[in-house]
Design a protein around this nucleic acid. Sequence first.
DNA 1: TTATTTTCTAAGCACTCGCTTATAGTAGGC
DNA 2: GCCTACTATAAGCGAGTGCTTAGAAAATAA
Lengths: 200, 200
Amino acid sequence: MSTPKNAVISGSKAAARMREAAIDAFAETGYGGTTTRQIAARLDMSPAAMYPHYKSKEELLYAIAYEGHDSALQVVLGADIPEADATTRLTSIIGRFAQWQAEHHSRARVVQYELAALEPNHYRVITGVRRRTTQVVRDVVDIGIATGEFTVPDAEGVTLALMSLCVDICRWYPSGRYNNPEAISSLYADLALRLVGAVR
Amino acid sequence: MSTPKNAVISGSKAAARMREAAIDAFAETGYGGTTTRQIAARLDMSPAAMYPHYKSKEELLYAIAYEGHDSALQVVLGADIPEADATTRLTSIIGRFAQWQAEHHSRARVVQYELAALEPNHYRVITGVRRRTTQVVRDVVDIGIATGEFTVPDAEGVTLALMSLCVDICRWYPSGRYNNPEAISSLYADLALRLVGAVR
DNA sequence: TTATTTTCTAAGCACTCGCTTATAGTAGGC
DNA sequence: GCCTACTATAAGCGAGTGCTTAGAAAATAA
């Protein structure tokens, strides 16, 4: 779970609504291009309404970024099937991760593109969570190489590409025929197997 | 060429310096998070220094976005080898396009991530240029499928993935061993051939 | 109920925003 | 030389910025 174990995210209903409003606003106009008044206005509240819940605009972004990255990590961990072969595992992990990026494309955009606005200490926490998510994929790639299921000259490069491909979904989704999370999921599962040269 | 054929980009030396300063600033703090005063300060100029060259902050962004997208299109067109086979063409195009993204990662970030701040008319011009760039890749994918060089169940999806993969470079570059444009170029050329299932 | 804590608002502070205006400096053509 | 066109500045306008304070309202606990 993500909610109570760190003091980062307030459990209050109003705080959650503020985060949702902020996500929409940040996704549309960026962190620097969004004012705290605009966020409050989306909830028909006064300009000061954010401050009982978050000490600053940056703390609000941090709460959003932490919740989002932790959520993505849980999705990847939950999609893994440790007892299955590497091909099945990679299909499940990338399919679900890509689906999450599509389903939550506004959230994903804020969470992944606005990190530069975080304080150094906050930034470090977020990149730590992100590293753990990447490591789940990397481990499966390594196992697939070891068992001979995958043919990969460069595990680091391919892992980078797998993550990069999924993360970029929030920049363009939806587009053309790829306008629903299920279509994304199956496309990206296939692309992932191609990238690792899986025998099929 | 990109400079004189449209009135978008001023040929003046000072205007070019303003664009460079703005690119660095926008890449670091985003369009909304950057002030015109900060841009001027990078050139040790007064807060009003931008206005003889650009009517507004948005016009400055538009000039940057247009120049950047046009430059990327020229790179892709220049990398194509129409008389060669599809495998060679795709290798050249994606290798050079990815290399450009790495070499110009600050510029690429502004050009690709800050488009939402453009006026609708300006936005439309930019997406037009982007569509032409994508079409170059799409055409080669289609030809490779037709000649049997590539095995692709879904040309639209694979083209989307090829572009997406390259565009996302500016979000993370440099990283680990992938810290120079040549390494990016060869990695991405290989990844592209994997994605299209090229016979090798 | 009353007492306590939490959540919100009205008002406003010190400062910054994009941009305008009026003017000074400067480079090149004649 | 001098005119013209361009490039820059100083000063400042109206509006908006993140955030603070004091206190009202609302929810929760006793």
